[in-house]
Amino acid sequence: MISALKQFLADLRGDAEPEPISEDRCRLAAAALLFHVIAIDGEVSEAEKAKLRSVLKERFELDDADVDELVVDAEKADKEAVDLYGFTSIVKSQFDEADRERIVEMMWQLAFADGKVHEFEDNLLWRVAELLGVSSQARIRLKHAVRGDAGA
């Protein structure tokens, strides 16, 4: 996983020749997008961190140690990134439409994790969905489905 993070950060800086995109780098890109959701409002709650771990563990079928490592790497990648394109370009190129919609759904789950959707989270979801090629209709449908599940 460390080599995936190093390569991902090198790609963001434009260092070196790009290597083929590994499964670890795909996971890291998705996890960094997910981490960005919980951090964008300036406050990362324990409920949001727990939900992040939960969705990553379920989606990528990881054990606790791997989830913890992925969250640390995702936070670092998010802090080093200057924009979302480095993450979204990997996800868009490597995930099919259903998987990209699943990422947006996971982002909504995180946005609702603390009981409220901040305007920054809502705007982020709109931008990421656009960059991932997820339609507005699908983004709104997923929001309503998650909001219904969250009891909000």
Rank of each mutant, 00 (worst) to 15 (best):
Q94I: 07
M107E: 04
A74D: 09
D149M: 09
A16N: 09
D64T: 13
D99C: 09
E19M: 13
P20S: 07
E101Y: 02
E97Q: 14
R141I: 08
G133L: 01
A47M: 08
L9N: 12
S45P: 01
F87H: 10
D78F: 00
I40E: 12
E119M: 07
A111D: 14
E43F: 04
M1V: 10
E48D: 01
A50M: 12
G86K: 00
E46G: 03
D96H: 13
W108C: 14
V44F: 01
V67P: 00
R100Y: 01
R13F: 09
D96N: 15
A152C: 12
G133V: 09
A10M: 14
L84V: 07
D24E: 15
L132H: 06
R147C: 10
I90F: 07
G148H: 10
A74M: 01
S45Q: 02
D78E: 13
L70P: 01
R53F: 07
S45Y: 01
I40T: 15
V128K: 04
R27E: 11
A30W: 01
E43D: 04
E23T: 07
G14L: 04
T88H: 00
W126H: 11
R147H: 08
D83L: 00
R147A: 15
W126M: 08
A50R: 10
R147V: 12
F60K: 10
E46L: 12
I21S: 07
A150E: 06
H36P: 02
K6S: 15
G133R: 04
E43Q: 11
Q7M: 14
A129F: 09
